[in-house]
Nucleic acid binder design. Structure first.
Lengths: 202, 202
DNA sequence: GTGAAAACTTTACCCCGTAAATTTATCGCA
DNA sequence: TGCGATAAATTTACGGGGTAAAGTTTTCAC
């Protein structure tokens, strides 16, 4: 019988590969990322990654799944560490922005990209679902505590779309100095937040 | 003396090429777009486009410039055809959305993409500036007519970021059935609009 | 040791953007 | 009417990409 890779060997290599791939995506962009450079970064031949992943898309899916999980980790941590619904909401907002600009390539891979039939990658689906949940939980908390009023899922999507828009415009270099990301996202957040405050009825 | 291309010949070919390129971008996506297929679509050899454009990026810049101009055309027409600031605003909103979903590839080329040193393409810069202006003019009209109150440029950017966010989430397939584009963008627009209504001071 | 099979590498194929070399087509002029 | 000259177009070729197929190395039960 020949040498056989243990589960751990495989998992470790996949881990190392995804780390390197994430770094390369950041350094070279989605277009500049190549299997050959990835392999050489890992010190293996160009074909070795194909023992561990079906093809480039499979690697992309794994990298995306890991990005979703890191993202969810960051938001959940922010949510749990802050106390009080209002603080939690601000902390989640900050964590979101920090992730987006700290790992722009990962952010784009998560939200800019529509891989055909993502359902073929259960790991990705799960991570996606998890990240999705963390993005509405904080709104649910705000509504539960009576700080905001309305359909928490709808409000969550509205905040999300608005913030995401500002993020991608910034990432694409579409925002100037006068109306920069902080100004626009802050203003959006403020106006939307006020719009969902409970109506003071007599 | 040999045959020499007239200005018109060159302009016509560039036009035809950009039309075909725009179609191909839509059909194949940014990754799947190739010079070779573009050339074959035009019925010329793979190298002929290089007589008329420096390289692929140069073609991309031209396609983007044309997209910006079509976009500006659509918004300006909507703006001018509607009467009254409120109607104009709604018309511009509709034209924006119609363009984004009618020509998703062109939309992405305009706002998702940051070409390095776009300043090298004056045609692109001009078209970009023009499109930018049409996106804030309608807000300026709303403020001038007293329908909204505040910094028109800031408000314009806030609306833009919010709408853009919903558009790209939809284009990336991130929105589900329950909270779809219309629901989210409509809700965002409503809440932001109300947030900028003049305060009724006693 | 030995052989069989897993892990890995080398080689090779086809597609890409595009540089360089080559061919074709059109003009003014003899 | 032919005949360069030269712009326009095509053909060929190169380096680099993803990855299939073939070849090599390594490891373990016997």
């Amino acid at each position: 019988m020949p040498r056989v890779l243990t589960q751990t060997d495989v998992a470790d290599f996949r881990e190392r590969l995804c780390d390197a791939a994430t770094r390369l995506f950041d350094a070279r962009g989605r277009e500049g990322f190549t299997m050959r450079e990835l392999a050489s970064e890992l010190g293996v031949s160009a074909m070795t990654p194909y023992r561990y992943f079906k093809d480039k898309d499979d690697i992309l899916a794994a990298v995306r799944a890991r990005a979703f999980n890191r993202f969810a980790d960051a938001l959940e941590k922010a949510f749990h560490d802050a106390t009080g619904a209002a603080n939690k909401s601000a902390a989640v907002f900050q964590a979101y922005v920090a992730f987006a600009f700290g790992e722009p390539a990962a952010y784009r891979l998560m939200f800019d990209l529509s891989q055909p039939d993502e359902s073929a990658f259960p790991e990705l689906m799960d991570a996606n679902t998890r990240a999705r949940a963390t993005m509405t939980d904080y709104v649910r908390a705000l509504v539960r505590d009576g700080i905001l009023e309305g359909d928490a899922d709808l409000i969550g999507h509205v905040f999300w779309a608005s913030l995401h828009g500002a993020v991608v415009l910034k990432l694409a270099g579409k925002l100037g100095a006068a109306y920069d990301f902080d100004r626009i996202s802050g203003e959006s957040f403020r106006v939307l937040f006020e719009g969902y405050l409970p109506r003071k009825r007599a």
